[in-house]
Design a protein around this nucleic acid. Structure first.
Lengths: 207, 207, 207, 207
DNA sequence: GATGAATGAGCGTTCATTCAT
DNA sequence: AATGAATGAACGCTCATTCAT
């Protein structure tokens, strides 16, 4: 009795299509991406795409949704490694900052941001889908940690949610421009400078 | 030397085309924008576009370039209003912050960012064109002002350029997500919160 | 010999398919009708159609054939109600005329004529199939009745077959144009006018 | 000054397209006819069709309209040859009947009827377009002639319009079935039989 | 006997681009 | 300098048909 070996070792076809579609959309943008190319890259015939995903637009939505979902998982992990009572707060925040930078640098994440920017006018609803699921949770979680530090007397801050946003701002704001929206690597030293000076500014203001 | 030997007082045709092209590109994106529509909106025949701009791709480059140039002018003006020795530093920085926010909220500026995000992969060269002309100058100028404040003993900071970047980060980072990449208005109170708390965080760390 | 060894009392699947196919062909035309829709409307899977009917073209032929067969039955019944020696010949012929009109107005019959017109060029063989089975028999039968009336001295005519055709012509020729090829109802009074004046013209010439 | 030789000896392009479209629609039907084939047969590129005719549907409408217009001209000519006071009425009506048969047998006319039958469901409006312009006028004109004959005492009839319809019915009703909807020739003798016996029946009833 | 899944081929339509004028 | 007219190439999508189950 061998249940569930339906996709006999191969990835499910729908997933293969979405995977290929993400690559093509990221490379070409929504409008220039051709369903033919996606089908070829996914190794399926064009009608198979329509059977599984329903069309270019619906496929695009699914690509955005699933890519965002994957991004959430990655960014959530960043905060789980922040101890509730770290011996060295500065070290701990620097580690979080590096985690944030890592998420931002992630190729899929950058491509997702580019696609959202590009297509927000044509697909205004995509934005809410993403923000609700992906952005707020991280901020909320970080705010929770900061509040705990404040409660423990290790930080001084009125509004933890605001402080969390500001922390994220200090670490991530420059990355898009420095990396050409995620298409070029940023020198290690530059990242170090941002991370360290960002955390230090934050701590100087919050202690 | 009689300036304006452009055709008899009317706006230059080339400029009209670029203007119309910006509107159409902003509205539809590069790939979806059709040269027919641009020609119609510019009030010229299609071959005229090819005569003046050389083709869709070259026209797009020119649109990006000229839109960015206009953005620079606007953001530069923000700093000219920052006095060298303001009576109330906090007030002065808040004013600068509002100016930054204003530039960011500008519709053309938002559209430009969306277009850059969208087409950076296919037109990688556009990015350098923009960054050299548009971003660095503002940061340099702000850094200069901050350095003067530090020299006057009103701020404490090691690296004025870094501090300028951090100031900009605190004010602008949240705007794209809050405004759905510039497609929705942000409530006045939210902006106020960001501006004031951003300046205050900055000053708390830098005094 | 136990008739009906078709599957257990349910309508034969083949028949269900042909039935659904007729509806779809009538509604959409041959080319526009999709096998998917026919399958859905018949409540079977697509390959089942290929198993039972062999393909779209063959299925169309079968639809035409069976629809025509059903039409014959209906139009034959019209003549069985014409008595061999009716008290009022005019009344009797008017009744036959109404019967003819009824056959013509039948929705299936109209659809069949439209389909034949539409596809006669691509399926020239369909025509013979129909004419042999459907048209001539009625004319022959009517001719027989008319001959009997002539033999009884109630009509004067040389060629009963010709007269039968002319009778049918007088009653039916206008119906297609008046009903938009069977897609719109014809007002009762208009039909009455055609039937009565047709029969009267016929009788005036034949008495 | 050589005005108006724009289509330098060649037929206007739009007309060429409509001409080719008629041939293809007549041969393949609306749905099966492919714009590629029409373009090829017209000797133009596909977008030229869209520039001149706007699309397949609009092109079809134009084909129907122009073919019908041509048919009207032909059938009108039939009646102009019917003298107001012919020496031999029977001969004159037989000539009209032959004219009718000629119009009916015309290849374009037959194709038009097939297309109307085929597409009446998808394009219900086409029908009115045709009937108003093409069918009624002929009947009205014939009715006028018959009324004149009646007024001259050469025919006895109450309703000239009705009589005209009946005359047409007697002559044309059998033609579609005999010619397989206009796709096969009808033997001369058969036509003669219909024409002569039709006129004779008509005259026997109307004298 | 019946089907879910897949596909090669084709569809109507649009586009960036180029001539002849 | 400017255009009306034309086109080759490509696009998103659908279809009749088949095959492994």
């Amino acid at each position: 009795m061998h249940d569930g070996n339906r996709p006999r070792g191969r990835i499910d076809k729908r997933e293969m299509i979405v995977e290929a579609a993400f690559r093509v959309f990221a490379r070409e943008g929504y409008a220039q991406a051709s369903v033919d190319v996606i089908a070829a890259e996914a190794g399926v015939a064009k009608p198979t795409i329509y059977a599984h995903l329903g069309g270019k637009e619906q496929m695009f939505r699914e690509v955005i949704r699933s890519t965002a979902a994957r991004g959430i998982a990655k960014s959530s992990a960043v905060l789980t490694e922040l101890p509730a009572d770290p011996p060295d707060l500065r070290e701990a925040l620097i580690a979080v900052a590096w985690g944030l930078v890592g998420c931002f640098q992630d190729e899929r994440s950058a491509a997702l941001r580019r696609l959202l920017n590009a297509e927000i006018v044509r697909f205004p609803d995509l934005f809410d889908l993403i923000r609700a699921d992906a952005v707020d949770p991280f901020n909320e979680a970080l705010a929770g940690r900061l509040a705990r530090f404040a409660h423990a007397g290790r930080l001084t801050l009125d509004d933890p949610v605001r402080a969390a946003s500001q922390f994220v701002a200090l670490i991530t704001e420059e990355l898009p421009m420095l990396s050409a929206f995620g298409t070029r690597p940023i020198p290690r030293e530059k990242l170090e400078e941002i991370v360290v000076s960002g955390v230090d500014l934050f701590l100087r203001a919050m202690r």
